[in-house]
Design a protein around this nucleic acid. Sequence first.
DNA 1: CGGGAGTGTTACCGCTGGTAACCCTCCGGT
DNA 2: ACCGGAGGGTTACCAGCGGTAACACTCCCG
Lengths: 196, 196
Amino acid sequence: MSAALRLADRASRREALLDAADRIIRRDGPAASMVSIAGEAGITKPILYRHFGDKGGLYAALADRYTGELLAQLQAALEAGRGRRDRVERTVDAYLLAIERQPQVYRFLLDPGVPSAEAAQAQFQVRSFTRRLSMLLAGGIAAEIGVPATRAAAWGHGIVGMVQSAGDWWLETHAVTRTELVQELTDLLFGGYGTS
Amino acid sequence: MSAALRLADRASRREALLDAADRIIRRDGPAASMVSIAGEAGITKPILYRHFGDKGGLYAALADRYTGELLAQLQAALEAGRGRRDRVERTVDAYLLAIERQPQVYRFLLDPGVPSAEAAQAQFQVRSFTRRLSMLLAGGIAAEIGVPATRAAAWGHGIVGMVQSAGDWWLETHAVTRTELVQELTDLLFGGYGTS
DNA sequence: CGGGAGTGTTACCGCTGGTAACCCTCCGGT
DNA sequence: ACCGGAGGGTTACCAGCGGTAACACTCCCG
């Protein structure tokens, strides 16, 4: 009977640990160390390792949490829009808003400062997120406009990378306002380059 | 008099060290360690540090070399093309060809597995490359079709990211042939999504 | 023939991720 | 009431990393 309690305890504990890691990563960026995370959580390293096995495991869990939130926001924006162009604008804007609000988290997701191959799981998790997002987008494209699957896939990955890269640049320079960037990118997607 | 000789020696030595680092990075990817690079070059660590000061310095030098080559290839492709669409196709193809031939180098450039903030210079160098490339592209766009500078800048970064991300996906999956991907991306840029 | 420059080495430091061994508390069975 | 084991927690350690200090050698120049 207490086994269930133990399990629930473990789960909430795990969440608390992730919260601590989240705080530290927001403060230190991808350079956060395991001991500092453990310290923030009020415990010591081995407990972290008992829960997540690996630094990669912790990072993967965190990445999963973040990407889950982001994906939900993006999907909400996607569904809120009316008409194709409106949907694109809202989604791009939602993405930019997210990375603007939590740049450290975003940096962590984009390049988790993994020392080497040990923590490749996190890298994988993030790449997996990008791919999931791209494929989701590809599915949407294929469904929206009749287009072969390979073309939709290529476009999906390309568009995701486009927004991501432009967002990265924008985050560093803030050379334009967010709404301006949304307009520029949407224009680009809707044939601004080819038909001008 | 021998000072010049010494300098030439130093320069060629430096090139040799970069060659060794290049070999190791091709073998181990971004996880290459300083001691293994030194070993490959037939010497020991401190010499590396005397030459490059820092791991960041070595990585920056390597990144500089790689990006120099890549930039030259891209510019050549850009100038070889006749007409806008042809230029885009050639350039995208040149990029894909380059990353296909040397995926490890490409990985190193994209995410140098820097442990943390120590070697931020390399990161900076690479980002600087992406930005240089994007701004070069932006300049081309602005000159080619009359477009405001901010729009050209946003587009430049977006397009670079698009090709980069799609190339990344392609490198992992090889879901399409290179020439197919070139066509898809060019179509996307030339209004394939907006005008279909 | 002496004495620096400069090249090379070994040996170390601090820090990181990761783990082994131990302790201590609390809960259930007899 | 006691006692034994299952976890949670800690200290103390290991290997490896980037980075550096101190020391040896060689070779060229005055």
